[in-house]
Design a protein around this nucleic acid. Structure first.
Length: 588
RNA sequence: CGGGGAGUGGCGCAGCUUGGUAGCGCGCCUGGUUUGGGACCAGGAGGCCGGGGGUUCGAGUCCCCCCUCCCCGACCA
């Protein structure tokens, strides 16, 4: 039993000034957490209980799927991360420190190397596989901008696990098992989620999916279909190809277009100087060619021209995800000077392509389908060209998902409109493949006695972030309202009478009775605190059931409030214990 | 790194324009009155006013430099 008279907590009447999002505001105000540094929070007794509850559920389900828990230091030596080049690759986000002898250390942002090397240390036969290991660990990332309290911290609690398999089929099975386990975990936590296709990004690997809690203040943008169950984050959305009707397109025609470096000026000029018979020209008739500089991992720079329909912007985040691990840099004046074939504002596809004279790589957004007709640059200043047909008058070196995704775009699976939403990434499952095993030399002997490189999966759940996410989903104007699975207590009993009127004795014995039925009770036994204060605190603290023992007791009734369903019931005092137990169990 | 906002008791804020011994609400302590929606009265404790330098007889307030925090963007296994 937790007695509020003894509990180390202080609720705040006002919102903390530095908190914006509800979870941050309420967790601080209700005395669950305190900020000690940007992106670093102390956990007070109530908050710590919630965190431990989330952790317990994660641990139970990980154990149930057969994964085994281990624990690594957060403080790691540099050399391990040097092997995979992440000491440099991880960049400024890595917390680095130096010991008294001048040796470099880091605070682990993620532990692929450690897990891989641990398995390499102990296992050497295919008979040992598959195996899945996990840990629940404090992770450190020197985020450029920590924000929203627990949602993006520089120190946070994360469950990360890794699967080790002999072959692709095994990896797929481990992946599917993890995925199913995550679904169970988030269901038990009460967290709504959407599983979206994701890019595997700089980590390499193939299959990758994120679990997003659909919440407006989330940092991740994703799309989902309004009709089928397709969902993907914006980097990974694939485009439904437009269907074009075959028609007789006139031969390409150059059109003078002075002072028309933008799509808007171009469309205006065409409608004035070169009007169509059937309709107005629009931005969608134009092909916009954007040039960027790719910086490859080996330091080499390569210009890349990307063509998208003129009515859309190029989404640089999507481009960056497609070209990773190469990095995207702006194409500056010096670059234009080096490549005179690229005329700023008048770039066109005819002189582009690896096999062309320029040798400049040219990629098209998939919306620019074979047979489509475009107005675009003619590669000379003040000239554009009309009636240019993809496949007839120009070709590209390939496609790239580059154009921005707009609400209402067709679903790639069923063509229904897509909607754009925001979410918090609460989990990530993904097939790492053999990258780390190869670099770190993790192989086992197969049936034929030949070494086989192990294939890995990597799976994460942000445990402290999950606490904040639950608070985001489960709160109202009055305060928090925890699902029972993670609440610090099942029942909040308020003594709302004078105490010497029997309310105190009744509440005490009721609490004992509830505890003996297996419920955890938070008892507000503070004396000299007015009922109004106790009610406000009970609502702010957010236990799923609030029981008020007050003026009704004289008439033989106790008030039971279901915080989640928002109902109030007067229950006869002699049956109230049973009523509460039933109510609490109904959530299970 | 760019843009915007802000640093004054534990929390929320005023004071700065126009320099003159730091104030309000909440919280905390003592005594009393209260007790179903953040009660009331009386008395208290608690503040290098983010830091450094300068101007001035005198700086929370004016000038210069620096630091930190929050929000948006860039960045982000």
């Amino acid at each position: 039993m937790i007695r509020l008279s003894q509990l180390f907590v202080r609720t705040l009447r006002d919102d903390p000034a530095d908190a914006e999002v509800p979870s941050h505001r309420l967790l601080v105000r209700a005395g669950y957490i305190r900020r000690v540094a940007p992106g670093g929070y102390s956990w007070l007794p109530l908050g710590w209980k919630v965190l431990r509850n989330v952790e317990r559920i994660v641990r139970q389900e990980m154990d149930a799927m057969g994964a085994q828990e281990v624990h690594f230091p957060a403080l790691l030596p540099r050399d391990v991360y040097e092997l995979t080049n992440r000491w440099t690759e991880y960049g400024d986000n890595l917390f680095r420190l130096v010991d008294r002898r001048g040796a470099d250390y880091l605070l682990g942002p993620t532990h692929e190397e450690m897990f891989t090397l641990l398995v390499k240390d102990l296992y050497s036969s295919y008979k040992d596989l598959p195996v899945s290991l996990y840990q629940i660990q404090t992770k450190y990332r020197d985020e450029a901008r920590p924000r929203a309290g627990l949602l993006r911290g520089r120190e946070f609690l994360m469950k990360d696990s890794y699967s080790f398999d002999l072959d692709d089929a095994g990896l797929q099975l481990s992946y599917d098992t993890h995925r199913a386990t995550y679904q169970r975990i988030f269901s038990r936590l009460g967290l709504p989620y959407v599983i979206v296709k994701a890019m595997s990004g700089a980590m390499g690997g193939s299959m990758s999916e994120e679990f997003l809690a659909p919440i407006d203040i989330g940092e991740d943008t994703f799309v989902r279909c309004t009709s089928c169950d397709y969902a993907a984050n914006t980097e990974a959305v694939t485009t439904a190809l437009p269907v074009i009707s075959a028609r007789d397109t006139p031969a390409p025609k150059n059109v003078p277009s002075p002072e028309c470096p933008t799509i808007a000026t171009l469309v205006a000029l065409f409608n004035k100087q070169y009007p169509r018979a059937d309709r107005q020209w629009t931005a969608a008739d134009t092909l916009k060619n954007v040039v960027i500089m790719l910086r490859h991992a080996d330091g080499r720079n390569e210009p890349l021209v990307i063509g998208v329909p003129g009515d859309r912007e190029v989404d640089m985040k999507r481009v960056a995800a497609q070209v990773s691990p190469a990095e995207v840099e702006p194409f500056d004046d010096a670059s234009f000077a080096l490549h005179p074939v690229l005329v700023r504002g008048y770039i066109g596809p005819q002189s582009l392509g690896l096999t062309s004279a320029s040798g400049i790589r040219y990629l098209l957004d998939p919306r620019v389908v074979i047979g489509s007709e475009w107005v675009t640059g003619a590669n000379q200043k003040d000239v554009h060209v009309a009636h240019l047909v993809h496949g007839r008058d120009f070709t590209a070196d390939g496609t790239i998902e580059a154009a921005e995704i707009l609400s209402g775009d067709p679903c790639p699976l069923c063509s229904s409109p897509l909607e754009i939403a925001r979410g918090i990434e609460i989990g990530h499952v993904f097939q790492l493949g053999r990258k780390y095993a190869e670099i770190l030399g993790l192989s086992v002997l197969d049936k034929n006695g030949k070494p086989a490189v192990v294939t890995m999966g990597s799976y994460g759940i942000g445990v402290s972030r999950a606490v904040a996410s639950i608070a985001e989903v489960f709160h109202d104007d009055l305060g928090l309202r925890w699902p029972r699975a993670v609440a610090p207590a099942d029942v909040h009993v308020v003594i709302a009478g004078k105490g010497n009127d029997g309310t105190s004795d009744f509440a005490e014995s009721l609490s004992v009775q509830l505890e003996s039925s297996g419920l955890e009770v938070l008892l507000d036994d503070r004396s000299g605190v007015s009922p109004g204060v106790k009610f406000k605190d009970a609502e702010l603290l957010g236990m799923p059931i609030i029981v008020i023992v007050g003026k009704g007791l004289a008439a033989g009734s106790v008030e039971v409030r279901d915080r989640l369903r928002n109902t109030i019931t007067e229950v006869p005092s002699e049956s109230v214990a049973a009523h509460i137990v039933t109510l609490a169990r109904s959530d299970d």
